[in-house]
Amino acid sequence: MVWDARRAPRNREMALTAMSIPLLSEATAFAVVGEQPSGIVPPMERTEAELIAAAVSGDTASFEPLIQKYSPRVFATARRYARLEREVEDIAQEVWIKAFQKLGSFRGDAPFEHWLMRMAVRTCYDFLRSHQRNRESAFSEISEPEDDWLERFATAPESASEHADAAKQLISRVLEEMSPAGRLIITLLELEDRSVKEISELTGWSVPLVKVRAFRARGEMRKILARLTRDKYL
């Protein structure tokens, strides 16, 4: 039986759903109301595989639901590596354009999201490498709250909360000082809690290489922290 929300709002929730229908995309509205012109399959009702197949055959519009669905993840990933919103958008845009161009190489063995995230991580790594020369020596410009946080940590480590904005700013500065490979590894391993095998799949590096780079990255981070504290306390 097809339920038409616009005709029969039986309770408040249904009425709200009916009100929101005009705000939804045409395809979603078809899905809710169940009225659909014959012969037209709205993009939202098609499976991911069907949308991908249509996009590969040149139907660009079929790519839109995929962009809508996975863009939040792409943006969250890009924001881990780029500071400026303009740079984040550039990365996300590049990821999607690459994804569209290479969609033919997607075999469907793994979920589309994994394939896309591999592309996103590699694009972010390329971004870090291309912006390597622009990295500033950030420790000379430590703000007062960051300075206070470090001071607090030096006197009583437990009193310095990791939820403080100053701590967030400090770790951002430390990560910006790191090499592209080091930053990528620390982000994936420590911040996203990914396994070495997962990182290997995402980056295309071998498992031993990931382990070596992780070891080096931790050392690099400790050196940067040593410099930060030496500049401040010696």
């Binding site: 660009t60 519009a61 790519f63 839109e64 962009i67 809508q68 863009s71 939040p72 993840r73 943006f75 969250a76 990933t77 924001r79 881990r80 958008e89 996300a92 845009q93 999607w96 354009i97 940590f153 480590p157 310095a160 990791e162 939820h163 403080a164 701590a167 967030k168 400090l170 770790i171 951002s172 430390v174 990560l175 620390i186 420590e190 911040l191 931790r218 981070m221 400790r222 922290l225 040593a226 504290t229």
Partner: peptide, 30 residues
């Protein structure tokens, strides 16, 4: 330094990045 490193990494984990997408981003890509 070991503790500082742990604390800062915990700080980064406590502040995950936003997943906000700019308005009509998908239209721009298309």
């Amino acid at each position: 330094l070991e503790d500082l490193q742990k604390k800062l990494l915990a700080a980064a984990r406590a502040h995950p990045p936003e997943d906000r997408v700019p308005y009509a981003f998908e239209k721009r890509i298309l």
